[in-house]
Write a protein that binds this DNA or RNA. Sequence first.
DNA 1: TACCACTATACGGTATCACCGAGTAGCCCG
DNA 2: CGGGCTACTCGGTGATACCGTATAGTGGTA
Lengths: 108, 108
Amino acid sequence: MDDLTEMLKGTLEGCVLEIIGREETYGYAITRRLNELGFADVIEGTVYTILLRLEKNGLVRVTKRPSELGPPRKFYALDDAGREELGRFWAKWEYLSSRIDKLKEGGR
Amino acid sequence: MDDLTEMLKGTLEGCVLEIIGREETYGYAITRRLNELGFADVIEGTVYTILLRLEKNGLVRVTKRPSELGPPRKFYALDDAGREELGRFWAKWEYLSSRIDKLKEGGR
DNA sequence: TACCACTATACGGTATCACCGAGTAGCCCG
DNA sequence: CGGGCTACTCGGTGATACCGTATAGTGGTA
């Protein structure tokens, strides 16, 4: 698949929120998860910038824990603001994707 | 609906291509069409920047024609490169939206 | 006439976002 | 000890939608 970067803007952050919402996890694992899910070219650096932004915006709770096989991990979990933001994200996605699909099907 | 600007990045240009692909039309009318289609907050300035970019990238054929009720209009039509780009856009959209919907449905 | 609304386009500047590159660091294995 | 995997940080880049302002033609109306 071609380059998706522009199309990911505004949606990748929501995907990360969704993954964190499922279970407390950390950056490196989130990146691997995204790659599995078909976001093949998403790289660690991108995910970390998103995580730092989420933290700065007060959407996540962060806990540092040692790892058995490497440096310590920063685990992320959604707080209430994060859950609300996730809800808004899916509402926007629903809205936008329905409009675009309608346009595609000859929308009038 | 909340602010969709970030989510529109990478998709709005494709929507404009699709509209132009249906019939030769001009900026002001494209804006009105987008508004009707649910892209309610998209404004003229945004559409004109996209159109100038399409022209610069050689995806459209441009014809200036007088209007009965205002300044002259610049009509846009897709050329071959534009049609190819439109195809790539829909392929990317299909790919991305299917992945995101799968993630939403509990994607594994 | 003077003003306003609608139509129609252009353009410089801004914010945001995903991405890149380089760096730091811990752990394991040959 | 060197390479490879794990794990995070941070400064900078490029693309995009958006904002504000300017310009300009047309028609209505007070």
